[in-house]
Write a protein that binds this DNA or RNA. Structure first.
Lengths: 200, 200
DNA sequence: TATTTTAGTTAACAGTGTTAACAAAAGTAA
DNA sequence: TTACTTTTGTTAACACTGTTAACTAAAATA
């Protein structure tokens, strides 16, 4: 009885087509102008069908938020694997974080911009926790190689993430264009200062 | 002929009452639920009168953004004046920045959160430029007392602001409550690291 | 074939920002 | 004081938004 399976597959395809149409909207006009109606229009179905696949608009945004954290986590893990020294990993990860933010500005703005209001459920985003784990473990490993092995890794992780997010978001609100070499020097400056203080 | 003056005064009062009603809305329900209709309802006038005093909703938000940067600038200048040593000023200003953010979360979220889209005109916000000047001058003065007098003050300013904004916004999206002592230690950790690297 | 379940539709509700067209009040000039 | 002009404010609408109730048509099951 492959009917049930076909139905599940069709439902999955439908869901994917909703996300695809939504993403196209986002790429062309940004998050602010994404609407259920436009999605329905794009997939050539009536509005309520979308609510059969997503509880509401926020659920659609949450899907992309997860995707974003998934991609960011993979990017961080990828560059981490290319180095042995934890401190070097930490620096490379900072640049990867920066690259991700500006190569996928739509994702980043959703994950950290619009995400602020929808933060009650933020602890339920497993993709975000994974990213956190990658960062924290690298911080811990760096501390282990430092002269101050009693440093508070959670505090340092928080500092690390804050510096990265601060640099990115300040740069992003300045203008939407790609950052210049000058901007990357700011990142390099801040992150090398942080790592230096971490290694004491 | 005091009629014209009375009219100007009345117009000013009207404008103020709009802002007052809007601010009350924001305090009770946040920026997201602020609407022209609710403001009109609160001041007991019809909707279009609001458009006689503000070009559109964004203009009302811009007014509060200016107010916010004005207050933040004053707060920074206030603590700066309480110290002589530039490095000490810089640290005190960081704490003042932090305090402002969490004592006036509504302002901060507007200034740096919702402000992102409306950033074409950000260079026209003179209140923001003033705040920038206070920060930059203190950075310059700190560099002047350091052993590396050739440091790029604009780069360092950018780093300073990014660290502060990063810490605040990461903390703010975690939960809306007031930050704990632990959170303040993170601020202290990050900012003292930055100042140390600045003094080299 | 008859019945039940599922899928998809139309139409509406309750909001939003914004504006055109019009009425009423206030100020000005004869 | 009357006639005219300007200002002020209103009603009603437009063009959107997210969401849902009520209904129909199609598909799967008995």
């Amino acid at each position: 009885m492959g009917i049930a399976e076909r139905k599940i597959r069709q439902k999955e395809e439908f869901r994917a087509s909703i996300l695809e149409a939504a993403w196209l909207q986002v790429l062309t006009d940004g998050w602010q102008s994404l609407s259920i109606r436009k999605i329905a229009d794009a997939i050539e179905y009536s509005i309520p069908v979308i609510y059969n696949h997503f509880e509401n608009k926020e659920a659609i945004l949450l899907e992309f938020t997860k995707e974003g954290f998934q991609k960011l986590g993979e990017a961080l893990q990828g560059v981490k694997d290319q180095h042995q020294e934890p401190a070097v990993q930490l620096e490379a990860m900072a640049h990867a974080y920066w690259d991700f933010a500006f190569d996928h500005q739509e994702y980043y703005q959703l994950m950290f911009g619009l995400g602020i209001p929808a933060c009650e459920k933020v602890n339920q985003i497993v993709e975000m926790k994974n990213m956190t784990i990658i960062m924290i473990s690298t911080i811990q490993e760096t501390i282990a190689t430092s002269s101050n092995k009693e440093a508070d890794f959670f505090l340092k992780y928080h500092t690390y993430l804050s510096i990265l997010h601060g640099l990115v978001s300040i740069q992003m609100m300045r203008k939407d264009g790609k950052p210049t070499e000058e901007n990357r020097r700011i990142l390099q400056d801040a992150i090398s200062g942080f790592i230096k203080s971490l290694l004491v």
